[in-house]
Simulated assay, not measured.
Amino acid sequence: MALAILAQAATVRAGDDASLTVSVAGLRNQKGQVHICLTANARAFPDCSKDAAAIKRTVRAADAGSISFTAIAPGTYALSLIHDENGNGRLDTTLAIPREGFGFSRNPRIAFGPPKFAAAAFALTGHVSQTVKMKYML
């Protein structure tokens, strides 16, 4: 009986969905688009191309101040953002150095390459807000 009660308590009900508000800070300009990827799959971070369950959104840079996501299953997630200034759908680089802006949840320190999932991961339960500060290398 006690196990059944614990199992029921651990089950996520449809009404228990989480929501996320992402505030984007430090865009260099309002040109192009901002691509956002929300994933719970550490192996698919940061580009989400290997995660069919990733939540992806593209917004005009001019409208990227605050982006909302609703009806998300609670869990541990990480965000990655790209400021695609020229609108070609990808992060442009020169000698492996990003020419366009990028950012991650929890704003981890950037050394060589993108951060690990664990550095950007956050718990998503109820309503959560994340402010992502965009970084520009060139």
Rank of each mutant, 00 (worst) to 15 (best):
residue 94 T to M: 10
residue 121 A to M: 08
residue 91 L to G: 01
residue 84 D to V: 07
residue 91 L to C: 01
residue 114 P to A: 15
residue 88 N to S: 07
residue 93 T to N: 12
residue 109 R to C: 00
residue 81 L to Q: 04
residue 79 L to I: 15
residue 117 F to N: 08
residue 119 A to W: 01
residue 71 A to E: 13
residue 80 S to N: 11
residue 73 A to E: 15
residue 94 T to V: 06
residue 69 F to C: 09
residue 98 P to Y: 05
residue 102 F to T: 02
residue 106 R to C: 01
residue 94 T to F: 13
residue 117 F to G: 06
residue 113 G to F: 08
residue 92 D to Q: 07
residue 107 N to F: 05
residue 64 A to E: 06
residue 77 Y to V: 10
residue 95 L to K: 13
residue 94 T to A: 13
residue 114 P to M: 05
residue 109 R to Q: 13
residue 81 L to V: 03
residue 71 A to W: 00
residue 115 P to G: 08
residue 115 P to T: 13
residue 96 A to K: 13
residue 73 A to D: 13
residue 100 E to V: 05
residue 64 A to W: 04
residue 107 N to D: 15
residue 86 N to E: 02
residue 80 S to M: 02
residue 106 R to S: 04
residue 80 S to Y: 04
residue 92 D to I: 09
residue 80 S to G: 12
residue 68 S to N: 14
residue 117 F to E: 05
residue 123 A to C: 00
residue 99 R to H: 03
residue 66 S to H: 03
residue 73 A to W: 01
residue 95 L to D: 13
residue 66 S to A: 15
residue 116 K to C: 00
residue 119 A to H: 11
residue 116 K to S: 14
residue 76 T to E: 10
residue 62 A to I: 10
residue 124 L to M: 12
residue 74 P to H: 11
residue 88 N to M: 02
residue 81 L to N: 05
residue 77 Y to E: 11
residue 121 A to P: 06
residue 80 S to K: 03
residue 119 A to F: 01
residue 85 E to T: 14
residue 74 P to G: 11
residue 84 D to T: 05
residue 79 L to R: 08
residue 104 F to T: 05
residue 124 L to H: 10
residue 65 G to M: 09
residue 118 A to E: 15
residue 120 A to Q: 06
residue 113 G to Q: 05
residue 98 P to T: 11
residue 78 A to Y: 10
residue 87 G to E: 08
residue 92 D to P: 04
residue 99 R to F: 00
residue 108 P to I: 05
residue 67 I to S: 01
residue 84 D to C: 08
residue 86 N to R: 03
residue 67 I to W: 02
residue 63 D to S: 14
residue 75 G to I: 12
residue 80 S to D: 03
residue 99 R to P: 00
residue 83 H to E: 07
residue 78 A to T: 11
residue 81 L to R: 03
residue 93 T to V: 13
residue 75 G to C: 07
residue 118 A to T: 12
residue 102 F to D: 00
residue 71 A to D: 15
residue 122 F to P: 07
residue 116 K to A: 15
residue 102 F to Y: 15
residue 84 D to P: 09
residue 95 L to M: 13
residue 63 D to R: 12
residue 116 K to I: 01
residue 64 A to V: 08
residue 84 D to S: 05
residue 74 P to N: 13
residue 93 T to Y: 05
residue 78 A to Q: 11
residue 62 A to W: 01
residue 102 F to N: 01
residue 66 S to I: 00
residue 109 R to Y: 02
residue 109 R to G: 04
residue 86 N to M: 02
residue 101 G to H: 06
residue 112 F to G: 07
residue 116 K to T: 14
residue 65 G to P: 09
residue 91 L to W: 03
residue 89 G to Y: 12
residue 122 F to R: 05
residue 65 G to Q: 10
residue 91 L to R: 02
residue 124 L to Y: 11
residue 116 K to H: 13
residue 70 T to Y: 01
residue 103 G to Q: 03
residue 74 P to K: 09
residue 103 G to K: 02
residue 79 L to F: 09
residue 96 A to T: 13
residue 93 T to E: 14
residue 94 T to C: 00
residue 95 L to S: 12
residue 104 F to A: 06
residue 91 L to F: 07
residue 82 I to A: 10
residue 69 F to V: 10
residue 125 T to N: 15
residue 77 Y to C: 07
residue 99 R to D: 14
residue 121 A to T: 08
residue 115 P to E: 09
residue 116 K to V: 03
residue 64 A to G: 11
residue 125 T to V: 12
residue 103 G to D: 01
residue 98 P to K: 12
residue 119 A to V: 04
residue 78 A to M: 07
residue 98 P to R: 06
residue 66 S to D: 00
residue 85 E to V: 09
residue 68 S to D: 15
